[in-house]
């Protein structure tokens, strides 16, 4: 490479990086402008960190699973036990922190499968509108959508062994069609934009049109939906566990805990209040965050 060429490419790489940094800065500005979305982000970060380092943060890490100490059972909230203790004398607060682990794992696993799969299928169906592939994908999606989600999840969990993994599988199976449908409708309108025709005229391959021309213009709605859906996943996961078809005791899953402890209502209210409010906090955080992400993309 000639020296001047080298200089030119260095220059361009530098400028490109500068521009990228600039646009990230602007996006962050749009996000951070809203106090609500900042609150959501901070709460979520706190939850993620405490879940990751639960062993070090939870005051009684050993209380997470099987642990019995009847002497400390049924204690109301106090400084020693922020959310009180349960019928086996376990610290509810510690269990809630471990519970976040399962909730976040569920969100992560489900969304990391559902969002890409649903998006790709939706892109294919939307871009190849009118071909057999559209009918195949969309009718399949219709079938999954036509079964009430909870019923589908419950039947999967009851056929298979009830555990955390199967609960995730069930939620994943019922969730992808919603992304497929959304992306499908976006793609089938965007594919008639002149810039897509220009790409076709240039000879850009279909796969590149889908992923480089169409997809970037859909990221806003997809990410916003994903964040808002995260809270739904948490909720549905908890519901499955609550009904006894997900994680089994003594797994410290939030839904399982609420289910277990609800038997002790109303006298030992603190037992279920802890995991229930933890659940509410997580859902709230995701919702606030979703609003912020929508603003980031809307502001462009």
């Amino acid at each position: 490479m000639k020296a001047e060429d080298f200089q030119l490419s260095e220059e361009i790489i530098r400028k490109e990086r500068e521009m990228r940094r600039e646009s990230i800065k602007r996006a962050w500005y749009r996000f951070s402008r809203s106090k609500l979305s900042m609150t959501g982000l901070i709460i979520l970060l706190a939850i993620i960190i405490s879940a990751l380092f639960a062993e070090y943060i939870a005051p009684y890490p050993s209380h997470a699973g099987l642990y019995i100490n009847f002497r400390d059972a049924y204690q109301p909230p106090s400084l020693r036990h922020l959310m009180g203790t349960d019928m086996y004398g376990r610290d509810v607060f510690s269990r809630v922190i471990f519970g976040y682990r399962y909730a976040l794992m569920m969100v992560g696993m489900v969304l990391s499968i559902v969002v890409p799969v649903g998006t790709v299928l939706g892109l294919l169906a939307g871009y190849y509108r009118g071909r057999w592939i559209e009918h195949l994908i969309m009718r399949l999606a219709d079938i999954f959508v036509s079964v009430p989600p909870l019923v589908l999840a419950l039947s999967i969990c009851s056929i298979l062994e009830p555990n955390v993994f199967n609960a995730m599988l069930a939620v994943t199976l019922m969730w992808w069609p919603w992304y497929t449908r959304m992306v499908y409708s976006l793609a089938s309108s965007l594919r008639n934009e002149p810039y897509v025709w220009a790409a076709k005229a240039l000879g850009v391959r279909d796969i590149n049109i889908m992923f480089r021309e169409l997809l970037p213009n859909m990221l806003g709605p997809i990410l916003t939906k994903a964040t808002l859906d995260a809270s739904w996943v948490v909720l549905i996961g908890a519901a499955i566990s609550f009904l006894g078809l997900g994680a089994q005791p003594p797994t410290p899953d939030l839904g399982t805990m609420i289910s277990e402890y609800s038997a002790y209502l109303p006298q030992y209210w603190w037992m279920s209040l802890g995991p229930a409010s933890a659940l509410a906090l997580l859902i709230l955080a995701f919702n606030f965050l979703g609003d912020g992400i929508r603003d980031v993309f809307a502001g462009e």
């Binding site: 361009i12 934009e193 002149p194 005229a201 240039l202």
Partner: peptide, 23 residues
Amino acid sequence: LRKEIQIVFQDPATSLNPKKNVK
């Protein structure tokens, strides 16, 4: 053949992908 025949559309606001830069 695609190389030989190219088109410029009416409205440049919609014929350029809004998410891409000029380069």
